[in-house]
Simulated assay, not measured.
Amino acid sequence: MRFVLGAAVIALASAPLAAKNAAPAAGDRYVAMGSSFAAGPGVGPNTPGTPPRCGRGTLNYPNLLAKELGLDLVDATCSGATTHHVLGPWNEVPPQIESVDANTKLVTVTIGGNDIGFVGNIFAAACEQMATPDPRCQKWREVSEAEWQGDEDRMRRIVSAIRERAPKARVVFVDYITVLPAKGACAAVPITKERLKQSQAAAKRLAKITARAAKAEKAEVFRFSDLSRSHAPCSTEPWSNGMTAPQGDGIPIHPNRAGHVAAAKALAGFLRRN
């Protein structure tokens, strides 16, 4: 599958400090942090020697970006992670922030969705439509204003923590790929119009608080949510899966291989141009 990512498309990504940023050089230390949307479970085999439950696929966008730019990757991503798990330990998984050191030149962060139950609520909405719900189904979660504010506050704290450890590193938030069809529920995402509307609102708000946190802390934001909008499930060239996923091509309601390829290619261009 070919991807044409022209200048007009790449312009959807924004960089508050574009004039001051240097493109990463070959051999630079690159730390990737975040949840499953960065870890890439099911996108290639898991990276050897990493916690199995983190699902760090060998073909996730951090690996592809590192290969494209010749960077020395430290992949700290972990499926299911929240902002709390970037800043602190998660059982046997150490804080992701500990992977950042003074030699780090680039840090990408894709985080925040699990804090507000974004994907979990999409699954819950699909469960509501089942004639016989799966016993593993969870209920729709109402997210409080305090939870939204806490999510944003911790995103800001993540940048501050990175700056303390690596003052010269570029910090780039890569926001969440679009996983919901724009024109209404489709066969790949069988939820009601109301639940789709609520989930779309959550996706927009998540992108908004990510951009706001980045701006407040003078970090950058690569708007993959915008770039992927026309590649949602049921589109001609989907970059994410619906409620099912082909074997070896990611997991449901997550980026597929094409999505990780697109993210890496566009992000490489973004880093080189800004």
Rank of each mutant, 00 (worst) to 15 (best):
A161M: 04
A22Y: 01
T236Y: 00
G112F: 02
R170I: 12
P52Q: 12
L59H: 14
H260D: 11
G184K: 09
V31D: 05
G55H: 09
G40C: 10
F222K: 03
F123Y: 14
T236L: 13
V171R: 03
I158D: 04
N46Y: 05
L65H: 07
K208C: 02
T236C: 02
R257C: 01
W239G: 11
A32D: 05
D115R: 05
R136L: 13
H85S: 10
T108W: 07
A146L: 11
I116F: 07
T50Y: 10
A126K: 05
E164A: 15
I111N: 05
P24W: 06
A187N: 10
Q200T: 12
P181Y: 07
D115C: 03
N91Q: 15
R205F: 02
L206A: 05
N91T: 09
L267M: 11
W90Y: 14
V179Q: 09
P190L: 13
G70V: 04
G112I: 01
P190G: 10
Y61W: 14
G49S: 10
H85L: 00
G80D: 13
G120M: 11
V109M: 15
R136T: 14
R53T: 13
S230T: 14
T83Y: 08
A188Y: 01
A166E: 08
P24K: 03
A38D: 09
L267V: 11
L180F: 03
I116M: 07
V172L: 08
D175V: 03
G113C: 06
A131V: 10
V171M: 11
D226Y: 08
A202V: 13
P233I: 07
A169Q: 08
I253W: 11
A161V: 01
A8L: 13
T104C: 12
F224G: 04
P52H: 06
D226V: 01
P45H: 07
G112A: 06
V74D: 12
D115Q: 05
P167A: 10
T236Q: 15
